[in-house]
Design a protein around this nucleic acid. Structure first.
Lengths: 115, 115
DNA sequence: AGGATATATTCGGTTATCCGAATAAACGAA
DNA sequence: TTCGTTTATTCGGATAACCGAATATATCCT
């Protein structure tokens, strides 16, 4: 029988929470891009839409995903809504991921099918 | 007109790479769990299957996703295959994510629909 | 109130991902 | 080579996520 010192039920629970709060938001590359854009400075929805050349409803939907996870904050200003990153640390984490595979992953990936 | 100092074409490209190499692998909670399991120690496929109580073909499919991105390495030993983490740093990154929303995200998430 | 602007949500339809079951492939032992 | 063991892959079918278009909501101004 296999054994582990990990508390699997608890870890599973925590990972589900992690996934729900953060990883889910990173499913779409465009959402990561929006995070970087907001990492530079706060933006209005139409600015994001313009800069990325993406229809406004699509941007709003992606922002809703980030908002629902508390990754961005909003401040209404008249008819506009100003979005900012809740926690800039997400950018460090994303940069850290990029460093990780820059350093090592590429050379070690096998050549089997990449789904 | 909105402007940004970000090099959007280049950033978009880099984010696509990031997403393809890492974020995609984090789409499924069970894959994150497998990463943690391998973070503790290397494992054979059937051990993972046993410990997580998941059918072996399902485990193999998830491992294939991780393998295709170079996140895990394999070493065949007879009929068995031993899996290890390519780069334990992924665990630090995941832990970092957990710390991030533990500290801040929960209190700031609004109550709109969380997709 | 009525119109203009900015943002959010809903609605169908398409695509992608996932799972379980069955099968295939790799290897060792007899 | 044949069998048993372990792992990998394939094949539907079900589900979930995504997008564009249309619509709804919120706010301000006259």
């Amino acid at each position: 029988m296999s054994e582990t010192n990990l508390n699997l039920p608890r870890l599973t629970e925590e990972i589900n929470t992690l996934h729900h709060h953060i990883c889910y938001a990173l499913r779409e590359p465009v959402r990561i891009l929006i995070l970087y854009l907001l990492g530079e400075q706060g933006r209005y929805v139409n600015e994001i839409s313009e800069l990325l050349d993406i229809p406004q409803p699509t941007v709003s939907r992606h922002l809703a995903v980030l908002r629902g996870r508390g990754m961005v904050r909003t401040e209404r200003q008249g008819t506009s809504v100003f979005y900012t990153l809740s926690n800039p640390h997400i950018i460090h984490i994303l940069d850290d991921m990029r460093l990780m595979f820059d350093a090592e992953f590429d050379e070690s990936a096998d050549d089997s099918i990449v789904v």
